[in-house]
Amino acid sequence: MKRYFRELSVVGTLLAVLLGLALFAPAFFSPQPLLSLVTREAPTLVVAAGMACIIITRQIDISVSSIFSVCSVCAGLLVARGWPLVLVLPASVGLGALFGAFNGFLVAVMRLPSIVVTLATMVTLRQGLNLIRQGEFVNLPDRVQWFGLSQTAGQLVLVGFALVLLVTLAWAMRHLAAGRYLYAVGTDAEAARLAGIRPQLVTLFVFVFIGSLTGLGAMMNLAQSPQVQPLTGNGLELKVIAAVVVGGVAISGGRGNLWGAFAGLLLLACVSPALTHLHIEAYWEKAVQGAIILLAVVADGLRSRQSNR
């Protein structure tokens, strides 16, 4: 109980927000808009899971937004050329993994700080995409949206898939040695090395992993609309990092879990509709999100100060 206090407090806050909405804006809970909201967040959730892993390993990846956009556009183009989805999916995941490997190489092998490396890849990829596509949309054939199913069915499939993935990953983080290695490396890379783990390999792996998850998220996004816009991923990195940090994953590594990140994401995702339903202008969304991040970080800071005493 005490161990998961941080996660539980996020869940508590989320429940409080939902309760508040139930009292003051019951319209929020009408099934279809709620499902749409959750579906919109499904790809973000997948990327957030990757981000949780990478922050647990004491790294950061802010290039996910660009990787997301590039994968979306590339996948869109392939689909438009008539590739079947079964082939486009691995292509998108593979492309993401490739970018992740590039980041991972610079961080793990060249020992560069991940914040600057991924900043550089983010700018390069985003501008490269703009250069080639000139902001052009990719129109997708009808068979792609909701996989050719009805909207509700498609949404259920996407949400279901995201949840299954989350459960699997959360299980793996806890029950596979590889998952525990992330924590070990994030806590103390040197101690991990002495315990027989290879921190560089783990770092490389986790970058490849978040890359592939981003490619996967891009595919899940693709299935939601009739066209792909090249700016689709912009701002994703902040949203995801915010969700993960609010969810109790410590930016200093080694601490936190996917469930917390999930709760954090839901909490942040609720901000916008909550504002609308509570008749507060939606322009406050970003400010409120920023304040939530700061609040979470300050809480962590105060807690660690107390425990150090």
Binding site: K286, A287, V297
Partner: peptide
């Protein structure tokens, strides 16, 4: 204050204020 008094990592603090300041401007 957040960075020195609370000893929080600058990266995450300024990420938060990045969002906060822009959000305030929009609001």
């Amino acid at each position: 204050i957040l960075i020195t008094a609370l000893r929080l990592p600058p990266l995450i603090v300024t990420l938060g204020t990045y969002s906060l300041f822009r959000g305030l401007a929009e609001a």
